[in-house]
């Protein structure tokens, strides 16, 4: 596979693009796409609100996002913000470290300290450096555990 970088100084930063030209969607290409997506989304800053203040959060500051009471709550270790996007919209743009844990919540797996499994109900998720908890429903628990295992093996 050839790698070519074209530099065009007439382009603005938001006009920059990465094109992968390939004959078929192989595993190698998919991995490449995933890596590029990770780099792009790691630069993302999420626009959130606290009363009348607008803030820009880095994804790594976020513990989990949850919809409740018709608004989207963005939890950091010490605070709660609201965001104007919908949960599924954020799920698409956030880095792959963000995993859905229920119909109404997405969690940042890099912040997870422990998962307390519960056979009869939602499993309790604890985070590093905070007393906040999130709950993973049984339908999404397997996916979450797989992602945590992937993360562990990658390290």
């Amino acid at each position: 596979m050839k790698i070519r970088v074209e530099i065009d100084d007439r382009l603005n930063e938001d006009e920059e693009e990465v094109v992968i030209r390939c004959s078929s969607l192989s595993e190698e290409v998919m991995m490449l796409q995933k890596q590029v997506s990770e780099i792009v989304s790691s630069k993302l800053k999420l626009e959130v609100f606290k009363q009348d203040t607008v803030l820009y959060l880095k994804p790594e500051e976020i513990l989990f996002l949850e919809t409740a009471d018709n608004f989207l709550a963005v939890h950091t270790a010490k605070d709660i913000f609201s965001a104007k996007q919908r949960l599924y919209e954020l799920e698409e743009i956030l880095p792959s470290a963000f995993v859905r844990i229920s119909k109404s919540a997405i969690v940042n797996i890099t912040k997870i300290r422990s998962v307390k499994r519960n056979i009869t109900g939602p499993s309790e998720i604890e985070f590093e450096g905070t007393i906040k908890r999130a709950y993973a429903s049984r339908n999404y628990l397997k996916q979450l555990m797989n992602r945590l295992e992937e993360k562990r093996l990658n390290k």
Partner: peptide, 28 residues
């Protein structure tokens, strides 16, 4: 007024009653 679409929730008032039977309920 805060522009529409900012997702700012309404004031719940002085007294709040939360009633949950089964299932999960989250209130801010």
């Amino acid at each position: 007024p805060i522009p529409e679409g900012y997702g700012y929730p309404d004031d719940d008032g002085d007294n709040v009653v939360i009633d949950n039977g089964f299932g999960k309920l989250t209130r801010y």
